[in-house]
Amino acid sequence: MGGQGEGSGPMALTTGGHAGDAALVQRLKRGDEEAFAALLKRHQGKVYRLAMNITRNAQDAEEAAQDVFLAVYRKIGDFDGRAAFSTWLYRIATNAALMKLRARPAGQHLSIEDAGPAFAADGHHARPVADWSEVPEDRLLAAERRRVVQDAIAALPPDYKAVVVLRDIEGLSNQEVAEVLGATVLAVKSRLHRARLALRERLATTFEAGGPQA
């Protein structure tokens, strides 16, 4: 934007200080639009990445990011500071991305109930378990393998996808994910584990069959 280096206008960025989120939030609550610009600059990458990983669609992610920061601007008065600003932001961003996802025609989602591993009555694995885990750490993902993994994630039901993105990609703790989603830690852990089991099963069918090397 033109104002970035000009030091004028409502969105001119403060390039000097490193005030934390809390100070910027206080300034924004007093109507300081430079503080909004600083929060935008500081967090837009995170918001976009989260929206992109949930929606897998650049236009949806961009629109979600716009919606998120509009909501921040309009609703900053509702933010009571009990949670971290970043948690509040993740909550708005996750909801915005899920809304985009749900606005699309419903695709074929994995049935999480049936997607885990099968067990015999005595608790042993019902099928042989192959080890397809050996992956050279430094090797670039082949395009085909990447597509298989992305398709598997895309097939997760939205609520499960959100947990996987927040926990496994964004690296939030179970507690933080619970705060973002307004769920219990127990529910988050359960949802995450079931999503990973479903993904593992789906990837196993490809990799055990000699598909793109894991």
Binding site: M1, G2, G3, Q4, G9, P10, M11, F36, A37, L40, K41, Q44, G45, Y48, R49, M52, N53, R56, E62, A65, Q66, F69, Y73, V135, L141, R145, R146, V149, Q150, I153, V164, D168, I169, R196, L199, L203, A214
Partner: peptide, 23 residues
């Protein structure tokens, strides 16, 4: 593998576009 296929950072042109949008 989930981590490896995660999207990269926001494209610079989009950063500019978002800032411009709000400006």
């Amino acid at each position: 593998l989930i981590r490896e296929v995660a999207c990269e950072d926001i494209p610079p042109e989009l950063e500019d576009r978002l800032l411009r949008f709000f400006h």
